[in-house]
Design a binder for these strands. Structure first.
Lengths: 346, 346
DNA sequence: TTGTAGGCGTTATCAC
DNA sequence: GTGATAACGCCTACAA
């Protein structure tokens, strides 16, 4: 068999001795609309199939100014919460005919900025992202241009950019309350990226819970700055070396809580007898740990699905979502890492 | 400021009253080669910057027949081994000017097939993938067309498709040997997807280790069929309910091992006193488990980096890699989930 | 040193 | 019912 040249519409048209327009119309499902004869339709479809024709999405995108491509920006896809989000988003996109361009920003604002530019150059139709943190002029500019963008997990303050996230404030409040109910008054706080909403909102919940129980806030009790296990490990060491050692640690991520657990182990502190521990994010194997970890579970699946659906609706309808935000409840999963504070401690 | 129309090369050319070709040449760094006057170069670059021009990669790709896009197919990105691979591959690609189109095939051959077609339609320059399993005519066809494709973790038998993987046979052999050395002779095997190389090679290592120690192979001892935790959970229940209960379980993935651990817990079997357990893949928090899990660690980072580099080299040079395969060593991490078999058991 | 024109593969518009 | 033709934005042989 002779090596076929690439099969294009022009190609098929020549072979069938008809014009490209007809081929295009038939192959993009508009045969009926143009009342093209049954016969030609059949002929075209058959040879297209035989030759293994598929449309060139590049050319199509260029012509239509619509690529059916979505940019997905995640701060760290090795973190299970983001890999879950990525998984469900990519699936939803694909099912709706969109391809996903992935960028892992590694929690780096500079990378995020570049990635945003890159996605623009590739003419994506929309963007789903968990921003690195704080303020981003770029993101706002994109949104202000009317470009479809929705945020997931993390979001930004002052604009109406649609987002789906968890009720971080309430979740943290509940968790800290759980600790307070167990008699803890010295509670360390392992924060995530400080100017990210999840971290700042959780801190707000922490402070409110303290205040509601007449426990003074001590800035020294707030440590760390990433949602990573090693960060939790280091921060826990700092906190647990204080002369007045905290009796409990509240962590903004489950992986940081695991890091803290490791620190405790190395410092010969028992969890929960010596230190109680609680972590945001569910952790699938929490119950298999030496001390099963009490967690504040997010609805991970709903985060990814909700956000991607919001974006798809936007792309579909051409209009941004009515209600710009969805906030999902969290759930406290009580396991064994929180104990009543012993009497020997104040 | 008046709303600008989209800024294109033509656009800039009109504004500067020069031709598009000059603009194109300058903006694609060929100013010097064409000996374009310093002045025009400067003028063009400045207004391009001022207007925020960036090239339309769609048009560029269409013209150049090269998109600087790579397809990344992963069977399950929520599995940490694949999210690690995805992370390092995406990073390597981006650093080299390539964007990554992600497809999570969910271990489904049908999805894989569709995804492959989709990537073709999008004119990706190359593909990095961990195939779902067994035989795939599509993958072979792609490779036989000379299209740049490299496999990672999982690979295929009979063709010279380049791949990077771990020494699954040796790793499994080492692990089973470790069990045998501790007196185990009834060893259950929790397999992954049976016709995937990692699973079949690990099974081969298991069988060889048994044979080398005069332990008869019993097909009933092989259970399961996915690399997932629930699959390990179910399979462990089956194995541990045998009249002649295995004294040890070898799992083809660490998550399946965790599932098995959960099954043990629910059946009131202690690990390792009643059942020894070993899992392929490192698990970052293995040491924090109630019973720290003994594992066979893969060089996860090297897998992703090696494979993506191999593909990048191919794209760069235009030629497939000299040596079609890289096989990385594994390492046995002895923790506490394997015990000497007690005398009461045969 | 700069400009012109054709084409990458598709689709929409208008004409027949 | 079908066919030319232009255009999407870019690059490059060929001309000047």
């Amino acid at each position: 068999m002779i090596k076929q040249s690439k099969v294009t519409m022009k190609n098929l048209a020549d072979e069938l001795e008809i014009s490209v327009s007809v081929v295009s119309r038939i192959l993009s499902g508009k045969g009926a609309a143009y009342r093209i004869s049954e016969e030609t339709q059949k002929r075209v479809q058959e040879t297209a199939a035989k030759r293994g024709f598929t449309v060139n999405q590049l050319a199509r995108g260029l012509r239509l100014q619509r690529t059916h491509t979505i940019g997905l920006l995640m701060p760290d896809i090795s973190n299970s919460i983001f890999s879950m989000i990525a998984r469900s988003a990519e699936k939803a996109f694909r099912r709706n005919g969109y391809s996903t361009i992935l960028c892992d920003t590694a929690n780096d604002g500079e990378v995020e900025k570049q990635a945003l530019g890159l996605l623009h150059d590739r003419s994506v139709d929309g963007i789903l992202m968990a921003p690195v943190g704080g303020e981003s002029q770029y993101i706002k500019a994109i949104f202000n241009h009317g470009f479809p963008i929705v945020l997931v997990d993390r979001f930004l303050d002052d604009l109406k950019i649609p987002y789906v996230t968890s009720n971080n404030y309430q979740g943290a409040y509940d968790g800290v309350l759980h600790l307070i109910d167990h008699g803890h008054r010295h509670i360390g706080f392992l924060q995530g990226i400080p100017d990210s909403k999840p971290s700042s909102e959780r801190l707000r919940g922490y402070r409110q819970a303290l205040q509601d129980h007449q426990i003074p806030f001590d800035a020294r009790m707030v440590q760390g700055g990433k949602f990573e296990d090693h960060d939790g490990y280091i921060s826990a060491q700092i906190l647990l070396n204080y002369a007045e050692r905290p009796t409990a640690l509240f962590s903004c991520s489950s992986v940081a809580a695991l890091g803290a657990m490791k620190a405790c182990m190395e410092m010969n502190l028992r969890v929960p007898e010596d230190v109680s521990l609680i972590g945001f994010d569910e952790y699938p194997y929490a119950s298999l740990l030496a001390t099963p970890l009490t967690t504040i579970a997010q609805q991970t699946g709903a985060l990814g699905e909700g956000a991607s659906q919001m974006l798809l609706d936007w792309l579909d309808s051409g209009n941004p979502p009515e209600s710009a935000s969805v906030v999902l409840d969290t759930e406290l999963h009580v396991r064994a890492s929180v104990a009543r504070v012993s009497n020997s401690e104040k």
